[in-house]
Nucleic acid binder design. Structure first.
Lengths: 209, 209
DNA sequence: CCATGTGAACAAATTCACAGCA
DNA sequence: TGCTGTGAATTTGTTCACATGG
């Protein structure tokens, strides 16, 4: 399979926005749209939309614009959203349990397929539709659930260890919520969502103007 | 008060990382550290550390490095982390409730001071230490709790409306979890954490390699 | 025609390499 | 000497403006 020329995270994240915007248009029955109008409606940049899209093919029609249905489909394929994407949550504390319920609803194709924790009191408890299983069985849980993406919601101190366990269990990508700087595996794309960093950024703006 | 030359989000977020790293060193009893060693230990870039820091003053000693205690203090001041920062959570669904508990522990100076929801069944219920109050009283809740930062955890469809309500209630900064493109108030720094976008990025990497 | 696709101009961010000071 | 602080070089990302083609 040909390795596409590296696409930046910024571009990729905008593709998600475009897709979301286009789906709104779809619901409104809009059939075609120009980059200019798309930009105007959703506060985006028209030139950037075109530049972003053209990296993946010529999806537009000169003089006309883009067909909404077609572009939705292509973006959805590009982002790999046509297949189910089972998730496994590692760490069923407050955040893990909330995500188990939250990601269950309206986040297709992502579906929480399993959850593990190392607290014996939690094992066997049910959250949403998943039953909590022991961290020691992570590899088996990953195999059985066919989970591809791991959600890491353990305390910072346990993050690296559980990250490594996910990698060893054969997971293909990881979304980390622990406020920790991970030593990541090169072959496992990893994103960290660090709430504290966001709060501290806002705090900075509060402190100075 | 002098408006500092604009500092980028990227720099600001790294300052948070530096502070966190330095606190680890502090606990280990390290008194001084060079940018090079700091970079090596936490997988950062030495030149970038220096560039980032020097925007805010000359904190280092040539030929020696940085004093850990002093730099911690300066960064903490810079980021406005010396004062309590009360938070108000708008939308006490799964995510809101989880954050109410999660942000309660070990996230000083951030402290969840209040939570509101518009579901009558939830009003008066207690989550962690906060009692859920009605969204209609948001302005009063903000005033009484002295909340400066609002955490927006409502469904996408209700995001703009609740965002506007937070602004009207006099909040100073907002952290938004709703997967929605907000029309933001220029004077209210706003950050969005969009889980779906992160998942879709990972999905892209799974689809191509 | 008119909106896409695109090279060239511009801007932002990072890295390099070294001058200068403790 | 050895590190910080810093201009210059490089890389990365965005915007502009127009040639191209349906």
């Amino acid at each position: 399979m040909s390795r596409s020329p590296d696409v930046s995270t910024l571009t990729l994240n905008r593709l998600s926005l475009y897709l979301r915007s286009l789906r709104h248009l779809q619901e409104q029955g809009v059939r075609r749209i120009s980059s200019q109008e798309l930009a105007a409606r959703f506060h985006l940049s028209a030139a950037q939309i075109r530049k972003d899209l053209v990296q993946f093919g010529e999806f537009g029609i000169r003089g006309v614009g883009y067909e909404v249905d077609r572009l939705c489909l292509r973006l959805s394929e590009l982002l790999g959203l046509e297949n189910e994407r089972p998730l496994v949550i590692v760490g069923m504390g407050n955040l893990g349990r909330a995500l188990a319920r939250y990601l269950h609803f309206n986040t297709s194709p992502f579906r929480v397929a399993a959850g593990v924790d190392n607290d014996p009191d939690k094992i066997g408890k049910r959250v949403g539709t998943v039953v909590i299983r022991p961290s020691s069985e992570l590899a088996r849980v990953v195999r059985e659930s066919r989970a591809e993406i791991g959600i890491l919601t353990v305390p910072a101190a346990a993050a690296q260890e559980n990250y490594d366990a996910l990698v060893a269990a054969g997971i293909s990508a990881i979304l980390n919520f622990a406020p920790a700087r991970l030593r990541v595996a090169a072959e496992v794309p990893t994103k960290t969502v660090d709430l504290r960093i966001h709060l501290e950024e806002l705090s900075y703006y509060l402190a100075r103007g």
